[in-house]
Design a binder for these strands. Structure first.
Lengths: 234, 234
DNA sequence: TGTATTTTATTTGTCGACAAGAAAAATACA
DNA sequence: TGTATTTTTCTTGTCGACAAATAAAATACA
């Protein structure tokens, strides 16, 4: 029985319950606090948040819409599994969105966007200094999401956000293996990307975004392919 | 009071209500039977489908998740407006997804995919012969969605589906202006795309997909830019 | 002991009702 | 007549309860 209620305040604003449950569950899923495949119980959540099942259910429907949980009709609902077999489709989409969003940001950004981007850049650097993997992963996603926002294409932004979310779960596995070995390199690459965007150098931004994405993908792929081999030989 | 219930059968399977409402509302929105901006009343829908508000609400939450309706907290919910001011972002995303999905289809398709694609291709040609604009638009979307499915990248497929949906509404406006002038050209282009995919000619598929997308975009943009001018001069 | 069938238990999907919030209407006041 | 305030109406958000569907447990039977 988890005791995570918000300081015994039974008063809650009318529409806020759904968002609260949604946000919290989403973070718990992306931080792997809720393991892929683990069941989600509506009544348990209802008790935990001290509300009826109706708003809980609405939050779950939303999460299902984004693919973060899966619902078997009339049966259980559980945290979505990571589809390791088709990781390449994920990487394909991720690299393309890295490129497109960085490119558009160089083209369409406004001065105030740069401030936001630089803010997350510093948060990321701070998280790296503090060796806080969880925070690194989250701020990295926020950094690239901010770049996408500056590109001002909501279709790309929403797909990219979804990919970055999924990436948070995968990166977590990655850092759990290479524990405490945080590459300083990504900070420098982020800085270079910011510079290209600020200079409105579209081609350079594209190139850097692509290189950055492929570097990350290559590292993660190296890990998983090694794991695959281990799995087979065992 | 609309009388669209399904032949006075009060018996309905347990989980089917939500999907029925979702599918029907979705089609009505995309076919512009429900105009952008028009209000959506939960109780009215509940009466119409003879069910409680709970499953109606779930369907609405899903539609809102896909951006087809918008919900103002504690107030009304309405069909999403078409954002004419930012149509270029839509076109950018559409063209890129046309390219990527056609390219991937040429690369990853299996024989059985081609049968499905050819099926929709014929449906489209038949709809053009019958001068059935609504059916043309729907089968065109289905045709390209089938190509995306053959590419087997769920991230691209889902974004492309969303774009094709939105495109159904825009194309409808397009054909309402150029009424009954259906270009035969698109059928031929579709045939060429199928041939390139079947031949696994990735670069050619990419090229054709791009050209096809840009042709459509150019035509639609011509219409809207003309309308813009009219709006200003009036 | 192993399999088929019934019973129980658990969880989801649906319902009707009620209360909160906001808009519209009605009233008061200058 | 025009503006501010109250009242009413209408829609949404939430609740507790019940029924259907499935899984698990228990029983029957060979």
């Amino acid at each position: 029985m988890t005791d995570t209620d918000s300081s015994s305040l039974p008063e809650r604003k009318r529409g806020s319950g759904v968002k609260m449950v949604y946000d919290l569950l989403r973070d718990e899923i992306l931080d792997l606090k809720l393991a892929p495949g683990s069941p989600i119980d509506e009544v348990q959540l209802a008790e935990r948040f001290k509300m009826s099942r109706t708003p809980i259910r609405e939050a779950l429907v939303r999460l299902a819409g984004e693919g973060l949980i899966e619902t078997l009709p009339n049966r259980s609902t559980m945290v979505s599994n990571i589809d390791f077999l088709n990781l390449h489709t994920f990487f394909d989409a991720l690299v393309l969105m890295y490129r497109v969003t960085t490119r558009l940001a160089a083209q369409a950004h406004r001065p105030e966007d740069l401030a936001v981007i630089r803010g997350f850049h510093e948060d990321y650097a701070a998280a790296l200094e503090a060796r806080d993997a969880l925070k690194m992963i989250a701020t990295n996603a926020a950094f690239h999401a901010a770049i996408a926002e500056a590109g001002r294409n909501p279709y790309f932004t929403s797909l990219f956000r979804r990919l970055l979310d999924e990436g948070r779960r995968i990166l977590q596995l990655y850092y759990q293996s290479y524990d405490e070995q945080f590459p300083r390199r990504f900070v420098d690459e982020h800085a270079a990307i910011i510079a290209a965007i600020a200079a409105r150098d579209i081609e350079e931004a594209d190139r850097l975004g692509k290189a950055h994405a492929e570097a990350i993908v290559a590292q993660v792929q190296k890990l998983f392919s090694r794991n695959d081999r281990l799995d087979i030989t065992l």
